[in-house]
């Protein structure tokens, strides 16, 4: 039986194994070499793969992504690390205009992965806590994933690297060392675009992803015990494209849906999921679709403010109880 590993270790294993099996895979980013990355996700890789495949860059996010694209056009499969995902904004043009449109515009595949730590809960303040999926969600041609589990962290990383399209791989930094699991030793992948049922339940579908999956599971246990309400937790895993079939299938069974995400409410992916359900699952619904998300503010720094900002099990429970009465 293999030892349990962390979410962080799973991400690293995913990259490591792909680098072992495919010489065209390489990493570039800030402090990824000798230092092993701000969160140590690439620790030991420089020693193993050498400086042509683990490349420390200057503080130049646009360069990091643009160079990844250029290398991909030459047949490489680059993994671009953003030290914190917040800094991806500096590469916005390269991602949305060059990389995401590449196959559509000129028929060249663009297999790049852009990855980095996202999310709040570590008192990182407005610039080290963001959830950037909303910003890129409106970009055709991009894929966006965020694993919630150790298994998915590894399996999605492998799929992202092998995918011929640009993929933004969001790592929830709160999960890096907080969750551990044993995973198979074989070469498994998790397909992009497929959700999973994290917990089956007959009463209300909670559609979520990332660290919020754990909040939803926590809420589900409590609601099951205290209210006899059984939540079904749908872990999307892929935010773009998202698994429409599984969402609809779940809502068909539960007839009620809550969308939960850590990204801020207005313009967040939840709006899209809710519209999708309303347009395609109206007949199955017994109640309006509800969104639980962070309020429309920057991510604040001080603990009371940040705790107020972040959605959690408690807030979800409140929303569930209200919806159950509808």
């Amino acid at each position: 039986m293999p030892e349990p590993i962390t979410y962080l270790e799973a991400i690293k294993q995913g990259m490591w194994e792909e680098m072992e099996r495919d010489e065209s895979v390489f990493i570039l980013g800030e402090d990824v070499g000798v230092y092993g990355g701000a969160f140590r996700v690439t620790e030991g890789m420089l020693e193993r793969f050498g400086e042509m495949r683990v490349i420390d860059t200057p503080i130049s996010e646009s360069l990091i992504v643009g160079a990844a694209s250029g290398a991909a056009l030459m047949g490489m499969k680059p993994i671009a690390e953003m030290q914190f995902i917040d800094f991806i904004s500096c590469a916005f043009d390269q991602i949305t205009n060059f990389a995401a449109t590449c196959f559509y515009r000129c028929g060249e595949p663009l297999p790049i992965v852009i990855r980095g730590p996202a999310g709040g809960g570590t008192h990182g303040g407005p610039f080290h806590s963001k959830n950037v999926e909303s910003i890129f969600f409106n970009t055709p041609g991009l894929k966006i994933v965020q694993p919630a589990t150790v298994y998915d962290a590894k399996g999605l990383m492998k799929s992202a690297i092998r995918d011929p399209n640009p993929v933004i791989y969001l790592e929830h930094k709160l999960l890096y060392r907080r969750i551990k699991d044993t995973i198979p030793e074989d070469d498994f992948t998790v397909p992009i675009g497929e959700a999973r049922i994290a917990r089956g339940g007959r009463d209300i579908s909670v559609i979520t992803y990332g660290a919020m999956v754990w909040s939803a599971l926590e809420a589900a246990e409590k609601l099951s015990k205290e209210d006899g309400i059984e939540l079904e937790v749908v872990d999307l895993r892929s935010i773009l494209p998202y698994d429409k079939d599984m969402i609809l299938d779940s809502v068909k069974r539960t007839n009620r849906a809550i969308i939960l995400h850590e990204a801020t409410l207005t313009g967040g992916p939840g709006g899209e999921f809710a519209s999708f359900i309303a347009e395609n699952g109206f007949d199955y619904l017994d109640a309006p679709v509800v969104r639980v998300a962070a309020p429309d503010t920057p991510v604040p720094y001080s603990p009371p403010l940040e705790n107020f900002f972040l959605p959690n099990a408690e807030r979800l429970i409140k929303a569930v109880r209200k919806l159950a009465e509808y």
């Binding site: 390489f26 490349i55 643009g66 250029g70 060059f98």
Partner: peptide, 18 residues
């Protein structure tokens, strides 16, 4: 988006070196 190509050529030439 003018100027996009400097980073892209960086990656192209990086791959040539690799």
């Amino acid at each position: 988006h003018l100027g996009f190509n400097a980073p892209v050529i960086s990656g192209v030439t990086l791959a040539m070196k690799q």
